[in-house]
Nucleic acid binder design. Structure first.
Lengths: 125, 125
DNA sequence: CTAATTGTCAACCAATCGGTTTAACGTTTT
DNA sequence: AAAACGTTAAACCGATTGGTTGACAATTAG
């Protein structure tokens, strides 16, 4: 749906998909140190040039990499904004692994639910 | 490779893949509020029962959900440890969106690289 | 015992994935 | 003008994805 695309989550689909591949994560890792051309990005993996090029495009489409063409070589640089979005999404679950205070909070919510049995809730994704 | 599986990153593949689907993210969101059966997880989406079941399995295989069978219904609960791993991976890039101090750090690293031109580096993914 | 409920499994589908190869394109060098 | 370089495009491949259906197993309710 268009609403979904605009409102929220569309980026996350692409970003998480892009991150779900070790080759791509490795590329991002190298780009975190310096800007690299497609060729430089390709060399560490025993993979065809075109193969690496496709990985870069996935990263680009997810907004994780931006490319500037200079002459015949394409320079890639890391673009972190979308990573920040992914991080923000994960943060919503932070309390589940920071624990401790959680046990308490869980108990409180338990009490809350016991008291107010009437409400129905909407799944905010 | 087996080495890859054991060493690092194998989880991330599965976790990020699991998160790359809006249905699955939504399920996690609901599980963050309370434990739910497969059926309860399925209802919000106009999707077959078996379809939802497969999504849950993906989450389970990624270690994001744990299931306890009680009678004929399967209770699912959120398991956050793997989310923490994903968060830890993302944190390595945090400085790229917190910015500001970065410009400085980048300059410092630039100087460093200029001084020591001898070292080769390994891509730690 | 019989029904209905809760969920899985297996087969199947079209679409996408990660990867290859070969051909082409624009840029730089000679 | 020609050759070499850096990269993309297109066609293709097998594997996987998200989704369906229908049959089945197990627990629960009437």
């Amino acid at each position: 749906m268009l609403n979904y695309m605009v409102e929220r989550g569309a980026h996350l689909d692409a970003v998480f998909h892009a991150l779900a591949d070790p080759t791509r994560r490795s590329m991002l890792g190298r780009l975190a140190e310096r800007e690299l051309t497609i060729g430089e990005l390709a060399t560490p993996f025993h993979m065809s040039f075109a193969g690496a090029s496709k990985h870069v495009r996935v990263l680009e489409n997810a907004g994780l990499v931006k490319r500037t063409i200079r002459g015949r070589s394409h320079l890639c640089r890391l673009e972190a904004a979308r990573l920040a979005e992914a991080d923000a999404w994960l943060k919503r679950y932070e309390r589940f692994w920071t624990a401790n205070l959680d046990r308490l909070e869980a108990l409180l919510r338990e009490e809350d639910r016991a008291k107010a049995k009437s409400k129905s809730k909407s799944a905010t994704e």
